[in-house]
């Protein structure tokens, strides 16, 4: 299948937005005070050593050249050296991703796994006790900061009950799925729950509303007229059609998921990307800040473009409307 013109246009639009985003990030970091060479060598460095390093880093080249060099580097995986860690930024990010990616993935799975059944249940029992409880959960979950949930989870499940570590991350180890694997996962469980609760609350609310909307559609009556029980019509006809808004909301929640990850990693002292960005900022390791922020922004843009595409796949009608 050849891509349709609308799809090409949308892809080009996403690429352009990414380009503008990278330029904004680059210019803001450029405008920030602090000389990378000085940060790397310390304030006591000799003037000619500094000059040599600046030359080596290419800091004396014109702005646009440096911007393009950075972009080229991002594409080829060469994002430069961290000022403070002295290692390639790309490697640093990849290493920290091994924490952040599983964390956000676990949180998303948990949030979807809880919210979709809960939202469907609430809609199916509209106005009854189960619905009320789900609504209260949704209202509370949206209002509660995830880093506070994290603190409370630590208080109860780590300090009082001792079921999980208070924080930190043992690493995945070489053994793969041995004890090291379990240690790593158990270190991620509480953070994932903290990250998942607000997400689950939002998604529960959206699922409930979407299921109620779809349940009022004519084709649900058609399904019931075929002899499908209420339960079967709900799961075979209502829920699949109600998932569209849920998927959209999942995409729209990505910025909050990323923000949440930065906070939750901080609470649980997890060496993830969020912690990396936060520490890099306090150490003025601006090249790390620059690349990490670009990475996050690119993820948001990519997820949104992906959500649009997925939406079109899930709803065959949209293809026709294009």
């Amino acid at each position: 299948m050849t891509p349709s013109p609308s799809r090409i246009r949308r892809l080009a639009g996403a690429a352009l937005m990414l380009l503008v985003t990278s330029l904004v990030i680059f210019l803001l970091i450029e405008a920030a005070p602090g000389d990378p060479a000085e940060i790397m060598l310390g304030t006591s460095a000799q003037a000619d050593t500094l000059a040599a390093l600046r030359d080596q880093l290419g800091l004396d080249r014109p702005l646009m050249v440096r911007y393009l060099a950075w972009l080229g580097g991002v594409v080829t995986g060469n994002m430069g050296q961290s000022y403070t860690y002295g290692v390639p930024v790309a490697g640093l990010i990849a290493e920290r991703m091994l924490v952040t990616l599983p964390l956000t993935l676990m949180a998303t799975l948990l949030a979807v796994g809880v919210s979709v059944p809960l939202g469907v249940m609430a809609a199916a029992r509209q106005g009854r006790a189960g619905d009320g409880l789900a609504t209260v959960f949704a209202q509370m979950g949206i209002a509660v900061p995830n880093f506070w949930i994290g603190l409370l989870l630590i208080l109860v499940f780590a300090l009082k009950l001792g079921w999980f570590p208070v924080g930190g991350f043992p690493g995945w180890g070489d053994a793969g799925w041995g004890d090291a694997g379990w240690g790593a996962i158990s270190a991620l469980i509480l953070p994932a729950v903290a990250l998942a609760i607000p997400q689950a609350a939002v998604l529960t609310r959206v699922t409930r509303a979407a299921v109620l909307d779809v349940a009022a559609e004519d084709f649900i009556r058609t399904a019931r007229a075929k002899g499908l029980s209420r339960h079967r019509a709900l799961w075979r006809h209502t829920v699949p059609n109600a998932l569209l808004p849920v998927v959209t909301m999942l995409g729209l929640q990505i910025p909050f998921l990323i923000s949440g990850a930065v906070l939750v990693e901080n609470v649980f002292s997890l060496p993830g990307i969020g912690t990396l960005a936060y520490q890099a900022l306090s150490q003025r390791d601006l090249i790390v800040v620059q690349n990490v922020v670009l990475l996050f922004a690119a993820i948001v843009l990519a997820v949104n473009a992906g959500t649009d595409a997925l939406y079109a796949r899930l709803d065959p009608r949209l293809k026709a409307r294009q």
Binding site: D218, F219, R221, T222, A225, N241
Partner: peptide, 14 residues
């Protein structure tokens, strides 16, 4: 049973 609105009486995603 046959319904009035053929546009909405069928499940759009099936």
């Amino acid at each position: 049973m046959i319904f009035q609105e053929p546009m909405t009486a069928l499940n759009p995603a099936m």
